[in-house]
Design a protein around this nucleic acid. Sequence first.
DNA 1: TACTTGCTGGGTACTTTTACCCAGATAATT
DNA 2: AATTATCTGGGTAAAAGTACCCAGCAAGTA
Lengths: 216, 216
Amino acid sequence: MDDLKPILIADDHSLIRKGLRQVLEAQSAITVIEAEDGNEAIRLIRKHKPSIALLDVEMPKMTGFDVANRVLAEGLPVSLVFLTMFKDEQIFNKAMDIGVKGYVLKENTIAEIQQCIRTVSEGKYYLSPTISDFLIRRNSKLAAPAADSQGINLLTPMERNVMKLVAAMKSNSEIAGELNISIKTVQNHRNNICSKLGLHGAHALLKFATEYISRL
Amino acid sequence: MDDLKPILIADDHSLIRKGLRQVLEAQSAITVIEAEDGNEAIRLIRKHKPSIALLDVEMPKMTGFDVANRVLAEGLPVSLVFLTMFKDEQIFNKAMDIGVKGYVLKENTIAEIQQCIRTVSEGKYYLSPTISDFLIRRNSKLAAPAADSQGINLLTPMERNVMKLVAAMKSNSEIAGELNISIKTVQNHRNNICSKLGLHGAHALLKFATEYISRL
DNA sequence: TACTTGCTGGGTACTTTTACCCAGATAATT
DNA sequence: AATTATCTGGGTAAAAGTACCCAGCAAGTA
């Protein structure tokens, strides 16, 4: 077990690796490990379990994406940050789909990369400001659906109350307690809601409730 | 049943009611109903089921808050918008806690109120730009906790994979299918995760997983 | 080699949720 | 007065999740 989890830098350009390592190790109590291609990156992630891995997207043999897919498949506990030269919207979207925590353009400064590492290590996302356009467009696409919730209008007041508590992931007995009714009644309300909304199967109501709770 | 759901305006000042009604009915296909105090507001909400209720916070007898509490208790299907003269942070926070969808200062223009109605009717929130300070402060408070998730570090890769699918509200059989393992194995992983994390009871893991999914 | 860790599955018992059925009480509408 | 909608609860059965037990196998470590 290490004292502090290290940070991995995977880039085929030795100059970039050395430069980054120098800055990071000088200005913070961070240990850096280096990989010069994707295969080595995977091996080192498995072995040293770094908290963060900075991956160059454009690497020979195994790209940053290949590494990311591998990490996902094995469920390795590491936050991924992509480092790339290209401001490409499709690449960015694929990276977000895959769940990377940071996305930094190489045209940005080292200070940005440090900020990125700090932010990601707090569990938040960090994206280069220069690609915020992409993010906004992406969000407006995702927020689009919002339809098919007309069924909600069929619900009675009590059914709404039950649904709110379902969305809070309360169990039926907890709901019964809060509303001062019997568990049996709660179950009936749930069933009625499901049939009004056409929901079937395990957790179907819970999914719907958490998704549309803002419209209750 | 009405053709289109109306909008309720509750304010003790007749001048405000008439002014708002005129603008709203002139510029859009909206029906407005008026209430001059909180009691009447509740009665009209029950009867006409408006989609949105604009509530003056400062009303005699029954304030906007009293109306809001009543609406919540009965689970009436209406989106609440608070209209107030005072830029008070505590009042704002109480309003957000209670779940109002809009919060508009009377110092703002009528155009803002129209924008607010439009936004809220799409299921989104609308807050007067002049109180965005409050919202930011509030968010930083709420986002604060972020602790107690150290237990996550105890999880094995496979356990993480299972947990991600739990967070997506998949059933055990769905998880088993996606990971190509038996349901029994999934159940065992869940149990191991729960004991590592000290979780007990119904939906405990699901709650935890959805809350901390960003750290997986 | 021996040991540990993680993944895989089976067994068993209990609890919770889902999915139907039913009916009485109450309040509002026709 | 009759009808409808809503809330309330009971019954039953199947499916899913929770909570423990167990053991074999593979990989890495001491």
